[in-house]
Design a protein around this nucleic acid. Structure first.
Length: 499
RNA sequence: GGCCCGGUGGUCAAGUGGUUAAGACACGGCCCUUUCAAGGCUGCGACACGGGUUCAACUCCCGUCCGGGUCACCA
């Protein structure tokens, strides 16, 4: 029988969840869901100085919003908790003590200043930066003496001085490291807390993690961790290192590159499914028949780690936005409206949840005709404006083109208005027929009437189909806005003549 | 700088010792059309470079170059 698949996502709560982290979480999640495994969420909060208030909450919120649910961890519990490293001190202390007693780890009394100096000199000589091993062979007596003096040592692992260690990576294959390149790294800090590589190994083992799927930046940590597994007598998990996501200039992602966190993409008006889909495509590719637009269920069934790309990927906002547009078109309408409401409120188009509820059906109809024409939620909100608010001005370019270029547009609009006024059932067929008839009678091109009308009704040169707009606006508002535009045109012309 | 991982169009990304080297986004054109989208068709555009190995290399090997990662009492 196969061992149960258990994977973990182990963020450090030092900020928001960025897209690199989100993709790591996603690939872990896909892998678990595919293998009926368990997805563990563990918070790596051993460095109190770098912790950020609220960061855990932000990360959890982002994961939830994306739909990446975990089986064990904060808010869920589980048989292998606690799931905060800050609460797992006993595990680390016990494992550390085992290593120290068996001589596999030793106390080191070197101060941070000394170590920094050492590194500086190595740097200048162009050597690799490694601990000298000064305390490696301190006698027991010396150790006792210094402890008695009240010195607080760190605990270092004792590594072989030669030979090599081979990491078997599911994505990259065998990767060999020489022990000469590694040094006796710290496993317990002088404050008694575990260092990352150590805590990680102790926890991954205690939590029975079968596959460690993480970002490539950890590849060079892996030989160290692997050595710890061996020293502690733990069985090795499988490792898979995901390539990095880079900014458009191929540098590491940072704030200066614009939106990089999940919450920022949310604010930009992206749908969670679109982000998931985009991230899926960054480093993994579906079969040709599947196409690129996939639900996470579809991805789960065909996902595989060995098809994951080794190459770092530059993320492309344009494609994300395009995907988002695709999702907006096909999204469940009710849900799309729910996602849009906050943006409508933000744009001042509706006053609040209450109004959204009262006008729910209308909102659905409006959004339905708009959804294929926009790519993000803020765009959608803006496109809704004239359906909810009066037209206060007309696009400058539109005025020139449609109000003042042809002669007598006001007369034309007035005629259109008259015809509309006579329409009983104000639906698409009838309004269109009314207009088409007039167009034919006057022997003009459709656009000559349609464009000015659009501008009159929406204030804009771009909108959904004119008759859809008319119907949504309703007869009364159409007649009003037409009258308003006619007054505007006349007034403007009069003004010009005076000058 | 040492070590590690990479390098297919601008971006994502298939792919094989022999192919016209897929597809998607973006970009250009055309169609549809009341505008804008959507949709359909079409075009532009790539195997980093240099050596090998081989009948044959984008594919295998070596070197160079380029990019990234890492070398903390951060994770």
């Amino acid at each position: 029988m196969m061992k149960q698949v258990r994977v973990r996502f182990a963020p450090s709560p030092t900020g928001y969840l960025h897209i690199g982290g989100a993709r790591t979480a996603l690939f872990n999640w896909l892998f678990t869901r595919q293998n009926n495994g368990r997805f563990v969420l563990r918070i790596e909060d051993t460095d109190s100085e770098r912790l950020k208030e609220d960061s855990v909450k932000q990360i959890l919120d982002s994961l939830k919003w994306l739909g990446l649910d975990w089986d064990e961890g904060p808010g869920k519990g589980g048989d292998f908790g606690p799931y905060y490293q800050s609460q797992r001190q006993d595990f680390y202390a016990a494992a550390a003590e085992t290593l120290r007693k068996s001589g596999k780890a030793y106390y080191c009394f070197c101060t941070e200043e000394e170590l920094a100096k050492e590194r500086e000199s190595q740097r200048q000589k162009g050597l690799s930066l490694r601990y000298s091993g000064k305390c490696r062979d301190l006698s027991d007596a010396k150790v006792r003496e210094r402890l008695a003096q009240g010195l607080k040592p760190v605990l270092r692992i004792k590594l072989p001085v030669s030979g090599q260690i081979v990491v078997r990576d599911l994505i990259r294959g065998a990767v060999t490291f020489q022990y000469e390149e590694l040094d006796d790294f710290i496993i317990m800090k002088s404050n008694g807390l575990p260092a990352y590589n150590f805590a990680c190994v102790v926890d991954d083992h205690a939590m029975k993690i079968s596959h460690v799927i993480r970002a490539e930046e950890h590849l060079s940590n892996t030989p160290k961790q692997q050595f710890l597994y061996e020293a502690l007598g733990y069985a090795l998990p499988q490792f898979a290192h995901l390539s990095m996501i880079l900014a458009p200039d191929r540098s590491k992602l940072s704030k200066r590159h614009g939106a990089t966190s999940v919450s920022e993409f949310k604010d930009l008006g992206c749908l969670p499914e679109a982000i998931i889909n985009y991230l899926t495509l960054l480093g993994w590719s579906p079969s040709e028949e599947q196409g690129e637009i996939l639900s996470s269920e579809q991805t789960i069934s065909s996902f595989s780690l060995d098809k994951v790309s080794k190459t770092a990927a530059v993320y492309d906002l344009q494609k994300l936005i395009w995907l988002n547009g695709q999702y907006m078109m096909k999204y469940d309408l009710e849900q799309l409206v729910a996602h849009a409401v906050p943006f409508l409120m933000q744009a001042g188009i509706i006053s609040g949840e209450l109004e959204a509820e009262q006008k729910h059906d209308y909102l659905c109809s409006v959004i339905n005709v708009l959804r294929a024409r926009v790519k993000t939620l803020p765009e959608l909100a803006e496109a809704c404006r004239y359906f909810f608010q009066d037209v206060v001005d007309y696009e400058e370019k539109g005025q020139k083109k449609y109000f003042f270029k042809q002669e007598d547009v006001e007369t034309l609009l007035a005629q259109g208005r008259e015809r509309l006024a006579k329409v009983e059932d104000f639906d698409i067929e009838n309004t269109e027929k009314a207009y088409r008839d007039l167009i034919e009678e006057l022997q003009i091109k459709g656009g000559q009437l349609i464009h000015p009308t659009r501008l009159a009704l929406t204030g804009r040169t771009v909108s959904p189909g004119l008759f859809e707009v008319m119907v949504l606006l309703g007869k009364e508002r159409c007649l009003e806005r037409l009258a308003q535009a006619i007054r505007f045109i006349k007034a403007t012309k009069a003004e010009k003549e005076e000058v």
